[in-house]
Design a binder for these strands. Structure first.
Lengths: 239, 239
DNA sequence: TAGATTGTTAATCGATTAACAATC
DNA sequence: TAGATTGTTAATCGATTAACAATC
């Protein structure tokens, strides 16, 4: 039986786009159904977790059969709200902003960039693959008039909060933030911050962790061989 | 007393870059010390969690005083391995790749892009702010000869695994992956995948979640007012 | 029907929070 | 010294995994 409208944990939500990606691949390959066990082998979550996750939203499977790949794909897409259209604006049309905006348009039909905003006069009036670059001064009116849903923030960290404030004020419902700062938004606005450098720093940590573990391993192997072989290492000249 | 070399949970590691960011800000403001309580108010983790997290790595605080901002910043930087230098290559010099590479160079002195690799002939031979764009065919030799630590993968998802294989084979110790696929790497190679579209999808989920909650709220308010006020809504014509 | 596999409850594991003795 | 605040143990909370009855 389906759960009521209990709060879904963030861990579950983060896994949904991944389920969806694998379902797209399966569908492409012509696979029509999949059991939680086979899905587990593919995606790397336990079968239990997969069933548990999906049952937060409904009874999508069928006992003795499994899950319909196409059916589940559609369900998850709907849960994520990917059956809807989103009108977006980009704020900050530098390298990163331009790349992110193009990326967002390419990955999913439902996300449309309507305009980009800049303060730099030399950029204003230009365009990105047909998307006009407008004066940042005009953003509030534009967002209101064009019923913009999402703002992509790609400005410097010092300016990000004021951009978020303007977007929220003008009626945006979501903010995809790439500035390296933690923003505050009204609770009716959804916020997703992508701190790219944090992920690079986590990578550095893991690299060093592996390095340390390898060094310890070597150390251990050395002392062990020192105990077992008489003629090794420092003991060499003692015999 | 300091913990031995127990495995640090991933949740802790993800918080470290954030602690570090706030410490940089505090240091810039001239703040010299901070208690876990004050830090908690600032960063939004509980004081308990902050002390618990830091004690995974050492006794950085002082009873009755708190933590030295500069000292803690240095400790965390060292834990993350940010006191070292990293030599990087970019694979895939499209919009996103170029933007990510420039971003990585700007955020931290320690990360240096040595070269970019491409298969498109029209890009090979060019350069990105002084970084040469080389033929992808030559990547293995380059990574070996130049002791490259990290590869940034910004190619299409279909080609990402083979790039990861080449990088691992050539001796890279870390991979920062932006291709929309889950890579397999040898266990001596650290992998950090940034699935940008997954974060956009999570944003869409949260936007819809807020929308649903608001609709329910409205529904509840309506039925409530229907009970209390005689002349409201559907009941209007009944009097 | 028998076999397979779900949905769901119970058990386990891990992470966060609370409490407090140690100590600066 | 007294007050403040840590380091650390214990309690709580939440998420994952295991188990199994329900059912296709």
């Amino acid at each position: 039986m389906r759960r009521k409208n209990a709060k879904i944990s963030n861990a579950v939500i983060r896994r949904l786009p991944r389920y969806r990606r694998y379902l797209i691949e399966l569908d492409k390959k012509g696979v029509e159904k999949i059991s939680s066990k086979d899905f587990s082998n593919l995606i790397g979550y336990t079968a239990s977790q997969i069933r548990q996750d999906l049952n937060n939203f409904g009874d999508f499977g069928q006992q003795g059969y499994g899950y319909s790949v196409e059916g589940l794909y559609k369900e998850i897409s709907a849960i994520l709200g990917l059956d809807k259209e989103y009108r977006m604006v980009l704020i900050g049309a530098g390298n990163l902003g331009q790349a992110i905006a193009k990326y967002a348009m390419n990955i999913n039909r439902g996300f449309k960039i309507c305009a980009a905003f800049e303060i730099k006069p030399e950029l204003i009036g230009g365009n990105l693959e047909g998307v006009p670059i407008l004066d940042y001064e005009t953003i509030v009116d534009y967002v209101e008039d064009n019923e913009i849903d999402i703002g992509i923030i790609c400005v410097n960290r010092g300016n990000a909060q004021e951009v978020a404030d303007k977007l929220s004020f003008a009626g945006a419902k979501g903010i995809w933030n790439f500035a390296l700062t933690d923003l505050e938004v009204p609770k009716h606005v959804a916020l997703e911050s992508v701190h790219l450098s944090d992920t690079l720093h986590a990578l550095a940590y893991h690299m060093n962790d592996i390095k340390k573990a390898e060094a310890q391993e070597k150390e251990k192997a050395k002392s062990k061989s020192g105990q077992t072989k008489k003629d090794s290492g420092k003991e060499k000249n003692n015999t």
